[in-house]
């Protein structure tokens, strides 16, 4: 079994090094782990930091958004026969120790997609405004995509090769998160959620989406649903 970890990164020179340092080299049931960082047109030293690690880097010459970067990484690892693909954020929000739990249902062959959920664990570390907006996102997704999940905008996910090749990401920016859920339903993929802890600190708050931006993402997703 070949595992590929795809990390989209945009101006993450301060933290991406510590994320890459923590990534597992070996995991039970996995023969090899490849890490692919998609440097999404960073204007800082992200590329230099990433190049100092034994990982694969794909460079977008200009910034195209997280959805676009994810798709680039997924397309590349599929071309290189990855069996399981894990995606995570470069800002250090996602605990890499949870990768093992995230891929377990795929290794067991019970599910095609595993989604990390911050709401299946203790929620007390989630800022109240963010929690409210995310809960609204859950309701919004239930209505629009008809999928029952507890966390809609969590970038910590795992896909089987088959699922990753079926899911079509068209949205370049943040609306891709809703789009992935839509694709899971459309392709009748078996999905489950596993609890993950998201680390909120001053850095991740400046890098993450503002709560207002979440509304913009929702609008973009609705327009995309109408126009496509």
């Amino acid at each position: 079994m070949k595992l590929a970890i795809v990390i989209p990164a945009f101006n993450e020179e301060r933290v991406i090094g510590s994320v890459l340092k923590q990534l597992p080299r070996k995991l039970p049931g996995i023969d090899s782990v490849d890490t692919v960082v998609v440097n999404d047109g960073s204007t800082d030293n992200t590329e230099k930091v990433v190049n100092s690690f034994d990982v694969i880097i794909l460079n977008h010459i200009i910034n195209r958004g997280q959805g676009a970067a994810l798709k680039t990484g997924i397309e590349y690892v599929l071309q290189h026969d990855a069996d399981i693909i894990v995606t995570l954020d470069a800002d250090g929000q996602h605990p890499v120790d949870d990768i093992e739990h995230l891929i377990a249902p795929i290794l067991a062959g019970t599910h095609d997609v595993v989604l990390g959920s911050r709401f299946l664990k203790d929620e007390s570390n989630i800022p109240p405004l963010r929690r409210g907006v995310l809960k609204l996102g859950v309701i919004f997704t239930r209505i629009l995509s008809r999928i029952k999940v507890t966390d809609t905008h969590n970038g910590f996910r795992a896909f089987s090769q088959d699922a990753a090749s079926k899911i079509k990401i068209v949205q370049d920016r943040m609306a891709h998160a809703s789009e992935i859920l839509d694709e899971i339903v459309l392709n009748k993929l078996r999905y489950t959620e596993v609890p993950v802890t998201i680390t909120y600190n001053a850095y991740s708050r400046t890098k993450g989406q503002s709560s207002f931006a979440m509304f913009k993402i929702a609008m973009k997703f609705i327009i995309a649903k109408i126009t496509h």
Binding site: V38, G41, I56, I57, L58, N59, H60, I61, I62, R64, G65, A68, K71, T72, E75, Y76, Q79, V170, D172, I223, T227
Partner: peptide, 24 residues
């Protein structure tokens, strides 16, 4: 115009993606 712009944006992304993968 919005539709046209979206289409141009997608084409641009495809171009950037292909370039990144080919370069790699």
């Amino acid at each position: 115009l919005y539709i046209k712009l979206e289409s141009v944006e997608h084409d641009l992304t495809k171009f950037v993606r292909n370039l990144a993968i080919k370069d790699r």
